[in-house]
């Protein structure tokens, strides 16, 4: 049972903690920038690029933690 739960956790969260933590940080960071910028204005047009950059940073950090 413990082995199964371990595999289930791996399935949902992946092999490294760095990735789910990185995704959470990226989304929370993007939400914070949105609050600071205001939901209207530049965020609507360019907010996606902010999130994309944060997500790529999360991927890079998860790779670094693996090598």
């Amino acid at each position: 049972m413990t082995g199964f739960l371990h595999q289930l956790r791996l399935l949902v969260l992946g092999e490294t903690r760095a990735l789910p933590l990185g995704v959470a940080a990226a989304v929370l960071g993007a939400a914070l920038v949105r609050e600071l910028a205001g939901p209207e204005g530049w965020w609507q047009d360019a907010g996606g690029l902010v999130l994309l950059a944060l997500v790529l940073a999360a991927l890079l950090l998860s790779l670094r933690s693996n090598t």
Binding site: V27, A30, G47, G48
Partner: peptide, 8 residues
């Protein structure tokens, strides 16, 4: 996720 945060 970006659309969920109000991005168009």
């Amino acid at each position: 996720a970006a659309e969920g945060l109000g991005v168009e």
